[in-house]
Design a protein around this nucleic acid. Structure first.
Lengths: 275, 275
DNA sequence: TTAGTACTTGCAATTATTTGCAACAAATGT
DNA sequence: ACATTTGTTGCAAATAATTGCAAGTACTAA
């Protein structure tokens, strides 16, 4: 599993480098910030040397960037690199900045599946949130969600009816969970649901790191005719402690990679649409 | 579908720009604003150079445009371009207009009724919101509410458990209403509830201007042992269309005036504590 | 201690931004 | 119709920020 992880890291690495070289010298400082934070969203640490080559700037500049980010409290500067500010579950507002490049790609791809008049369940993760952010203002939907940020964004969409699942408020991630939330979802039969994914494994199915969150996800899936999974490529082939659903319950998996990726074959063979 | 939209937008932009440059028509500043914001809606960043060619104006002008938009808080100006102002869900936090003196006085008075370990229902109005804002960080409460802003504020209170009522999201006021919200409140028996008041009349009871809101308030009251009403003095002695509860159901009325006010006598005689 | 590495500081080259100014166009008043 | 005001735009010089380099300092591990 570790090997696979490494491979994915490399792919990501190349993407960034390519990205940087296209832009050339004219890369905004903020973009570097974003990428540094993205990295820290996945790894527990970043090295000056890595970032230097990745961002195509000198180590001095990376050092100054990290210092600036540290001043904003977004990470902790340590000798040789940086680590996340606080270990464990991050606050929602911090997590927003992570992963944007990949998740933006996913969000753009996901929009094609949303049609006027549908009833859609939005999962509480950041992937679904980005989709909500990019939703065309004229799309007519009924959205069912347990995520404060998503509800908050959709408030500006005149033609979107929002049904919010009550329950116990999970601090730091701004979603409601627990029996009440689940009972709420059970009342509906949505056309599709957009499911943020922690881990997918062809044999082991969809799994997540948190028990209650997994329970909610399971309920969401049960209440939806069709499940669209949102997963960055590195989540494929990994597994966590709590079971959500079998892999073939997913109708579609949207990733940040083109659909001709070799890794996707095993899922395609199961009849899943890879996008 | 979305992709197609983006393409059309681009074509439209380019056509317009070309057209403008041939004919020599100058584009309205507001059109440029719109285009810049559109770009930022899709991408995470915009470059001065890019916009300069796209809009067919000098970089200086783009810079001034961005500065103006930044002053309006619509984006963040950075060296070399601009980035979205805040990727996070700050919407309803911004709306909290630091309200008038009266409600602040009420909020301060209300704090004395909140004790460790209580289960408290917070109504969705601005009065209750102010109380939530002023809540000491070390107070241990279980709060039940249907208000996004209140839940959002209490998220930062470590010792406050938040139970959020699901239901249909009322746009513009960020509260949930409808049957689901009411059913949620009915599950509890709170120690006290903090009720924002529209109108109180000694004979006609508590009334409000909105039917569904009144229904929710009624449910809240039914689920609470003790009702604390929050009312600016001018609301006393008035009435609205929709009935909420009889006046003597209120244990306490908190107003912005000292409790020796003459108007209060009629309520005191009913056994209501005026504060 | 010693070697190796990372960090700090100052500096110069580059690049972006600010500022003042003049040309121009549209709206307004006479 | 004409002059005046107002606002926008592009240009250029002054100003400020960013970046990489280099010399010196501080830290870490054997």
């Amino acid at each position: 599993m570790y090997g696979m992880r490494a491979i994915f890291c490399n792919i990501k690495f190349k993407m960034f480098v390519k990205f940087a070289s296209i832009i050339g010298v004219t890369m905004l400082k903020e973009e570097r910030f974003q990428i540094i934070l993205d990295q820290l969203g996945h790894e527990q640490k970043v090295y000056l040397g890595h970032l230097s080559t990745l961002l195509n700037v000198s180590e001095d500049t990376v050092r100054r960037d990290i210092k600036e980010l540290a001043d904003q409290g977004l990470l902790k500067s340590v000798r040789g690199g940086a680590v996340p500010h606080s270990p464990g579950p991050h606050h929602f507002r911090d997590r927003m900045t992570y992963d944007n490049e990949q998740k933006l790609i996913i969000a753009k791809k996901a929009l094609q599946f949303l049609k006027n008049g549908q009833v859609v369940i939005f999962d509480g993760g950041t992937s679904a949130l980005l989709i909500a952010q990019m939703l065309p203002k004229d799309l007519e939907l009924t959205v069912i969600t347990n995520s404060f940020p998503i509800a908050s964004i959709l408030e500006e969409h005149e033609h979107v009816e929002v049904l919010f699942a009550g329950g116990r408020l999970l601090k730091n991630s701004f979603v409601t969970i627990g029996n009440d939330a689940m009972q709420f979802f059970k009342k509906f039969r949505a056309d599709i649901c957009l499911l943020g994914i922690c881990s997918i494994h062809a044999d082991l199915g969809v799994t997540g790191p948190d028990f209650e969150e997994s329970e909610v996800k399971r309920t969401i899936i049960e209440s939806s005719k069709e499940v669209i999974a949102l997963a960055t490529t590195e989540k494929l082939g990994t597994a966590e402690a709590y079971y959500v659903c079998p892999t073939d319950r997913l109708a579609t998996i949207i990733t940040d990679q083109p659909d001709d990726n070799e890794e996707f074959k095993i899922y395609k063979d199961m009849g899943i649409r890879m996008v």
